[in-house]
Nucleic acid binder design. Sequence first.
DNA 1: CCCCTAAAAATTGTATACAATCTTCCAAAA
DNA 2: TTTTGGAAGATTGTATACAATTTTTAGGGG
Lengths: 213, 213
Amino acid sequence: MKPTEPMPVRIKIASILRREILAGEFAPGEELSLTDLGARFGVSRTPVREALQALASEGLIQLRMNRGAIVQKIDDKFIMDHFEIRALLESEAAARATKHLEQLLPMAQLHRSMLERISTVEQEEFVAYNQTFHMSLWEAADSQRLTHFLMDLWNGSSIGKTTDGGEHRVKALREHEEILQCIFLKEPEKAREAMRKHLLRSMENILASYHNQ
Amino acid sequence: MKPTEPMPVRIKIASILRREILAGEFAPGEELSLTDLGARFGVSRTPVREALQALASEGLIQLRMNRGAIVQKIDDKFIMDHFEIRALLESEAAARATKHLEQLLPMAQLHRSMLERISTVEQEEFVAYNQTFHMSLWEAADSQRLTHFLMDLWNGSSIGKTTDGGEHRVKALREHEEILQCIFLKEPEKAREAMRKHLLRSMENILASYHNQ
DNA sequence: CCCCTAAAAATTGTATACAATCTTCCAAAA
DNA sequence: TTTTGGAAGATTGTATACAATTTTTAGGGG
């Protein structure tokens, strides 16, 4: 087993800043200084600069020529727009997945295991399962391009508190079940709609936790 | 008037490499060396490196830790997947635009002017109009997030030859007309479908010119 | 007191230097 | 002959140095 995964510094810094921006820890429009951030993380400006460029490409900050970066305002509208886009793309993935059922079998097995043990699984395991569920569908959609954009959107979906009560997990699991049934019955449009409902309800959950911060 | 627009080197290099990759001027899987590209463009590795990271975030190349970059294979499937995503998002934009008609008036005027003069406009002017048409709809959709992703997809849509005969222009103009009518009649679902048809037909055009290279 | 100008300071953009990792290649052992 | 180990070379990741642009600030004129 790998002791610790080697990760470029720019990725780590981008992850930290992404989480902080989405958590609302910066004021909208606040300026991000390369020197300050470098000092904070104990690295030079180079990887910080690269991290900021990555965040700009995700739309979380704005890069202005020779004038530094300012953080985007993350409000309800931002979150709703974000999930609308994710819903459009991930619904398409669910619809397409009906054409590649065999690829879904391992995930479906994990899903059944979850159904049985849901009351006793740790939060960490559920998060991992949830990620496997969604990403397996992306893969089954058989579109590198779709997977790529959904990965981007996934990173930006970790908004607000991560510790929601077990109630959300049960609902999510039921919705996953419905999505899978539509897919295995080869009903692309029903799968699309089920995925859309699932994501928009998750969004409501996130909006609620976002307000309670 | 500005004499020459100042642009970061990384943007220029990214634009050049993007066009070349989409034009198929690199073999799929070909390795891109920072040193070589720096020498080619007469700059240091730093802006080249940043350009490659931008292209990686667009999915045009793959960055491997400590092992350089390899170019993505651009084939019919890539193009079709690309336009499917663009169709999903830009259809949504068209549907949403029905809620902000006033923002569309300047573009609609330009459109009418095009209708009248189509037989005499230069290619360059039509390209500018086409960009205005699409981006005005994005703006009218009133979703920064949607605009951001569509801008990304727009950059990646310049595949193959740019000089298609005037026939395509007439067809595109007719389709634009249909889209605008649906929007101004406040029929979001019809607008969505019209935009989808427009983009998928444009895709066919691009696929054809791509094959003839 | 306000506004305009210019020099100084600070910040970003690019180039270069250094460190860490990977690849290549050759020799020695099985 | 094939394989393995490791040193040399090449390439990427990060740090630092330099150049260019912007922001700040101090001072003089209105």
